[in-house]
Design a protein around this nucleic acid. Sequence first.
DNA 1: CGCTAAAATGACCAGGTGGTCATAGAGGGG
DNA 2: CCCCTCTATGACCACCTGGTCATTTTAGCG
Lengths: 215, 215
Amino acid sequence: MESGARKTFLRLDREKQRRILSAAIDEFAAWGFHRASINRLVRAIGIAKGSIFQYFGSKEGLFSYIFDYAIETVRFSLKKVKRDTEHLDFYSRVEASLMEGISFIENHPKLYRIYLKMVFQEDFPARDRYLKKIRLFSVDYLKPLIETGIHRGEIRADLDPDIAAFMLDAIFDRFMQAYAVPFFDSEGTIHGSGREEIKKKIKQVIDLVKRGFKD
Amino acid sequence: MESGARKTFLRLDREKQRRILSAAIDEFAAWGFHRASINRLVRAIGIAKGSIFQYFGSKEGLFSYIFDYAIETVRFSLKKVKRDTEHLDFYSRVEASLMEGISFIENHPKLYRIYLKMVFQEDFPARDRYLKKIRLFSVDYLKPLIETGIHRGEIRADLDPDIAAFMLDAIFDRFMQAYAVPFFDSEGTIHGSGREEIKKKIKQVIDLVKRGFKD
DNA sequence: CGCTAAAATGACCAGGTGGTCATAGAGGGG
DNA sequence: CCCCTCTATGACCACCTGGTCATTTTAGCG
């Protein structure tokens, strides 16, 4: 469970660690877990094959290490948004959260790709373990946000919180997918847009949600 | 492009064709395209390996045949819904369309799984070809529906049709995913529910949409 | 029956896979 | 200098992949 990195790896100098992880992220993002090749990876880094197994024990150990790091990064930046926007109204907070999601993709496009590929591949070592960690987003993040919104009277009291959460989940996921993968941007207005356009688009979508949520 | 089935296969008696396709769908649904194994498949069917290649030319030819069949099935059932519900108001039509999507998953759960796995695996032979066929759903199906809705005055005229389409796309996809894959049902209210409960849930969600869409 | 054309077969191929481990090397302390 | 521990290495392993094709089996016809 300690995500697969052996002490030998941690004793490496920072730069070599970075090179190895960066190449591994490239490999997993390009090919997904199963089709990623350790042979190709070590060729790209310029180290011996055995070293990877010395560092991480197995292919899965390597993947696990990267994935845990990615989840930590997401969780951290979301916590920050939640804290930073506490004084704002519900709809502004939702907009800020979605914008943070977009920023994450912008800063770590490959980590997001790895996530997408993992979610839809049902055969997977320890997949459930990863998914449970991710589910925190909806249950631990969105739901309290909604409850606060109801409490503050920004959301009508007769709206089922589960339906509201479903709606926001759906929109968040789809918006991020559309930003990252052209196919999901059926309307062709999200993928490849700049920050300001995205912000405007988010506002439009959340305004539409607002009409449904508010009294 | 003629989706990979050779005449030899078409000359087989119906029952054997069915057995082969059914086993192939099982294999692709369980493993995805790349990890699906022809060896495993022929063992399950009880025929020689060479036969598959005689029938479909290649692994991709077999996949292509199945996928094209799946797309035809979806397109057919959607056309039917559109025709059958023409007299109803916009929101009832949307509800019926989503319900039809749920029915498809119920009747062909494995085909839906194959679709999901394909969409998120960016490396893929002829992936673009398949995706273009699917995009028809949003562009050819949803958009005219929305335009009719605006025309009839069931949707406020100042609502951007692209935003409306995005919203419905997001909700449709997520609802179907939640029905098919427990992970996406964060609120735990969709997956595994019976037809009547699903219908009620759909109504709730679309009612919420309606508040945003109507004047 | 014999003849022929079509279909079924599975041994075989080249090329990959994740993982192992004996060996060589590096670095530091005495 | 030796000695010892830790690290790096890549040849090697067993296994699996999609695909081929010479050979055998089957089916239909006269």
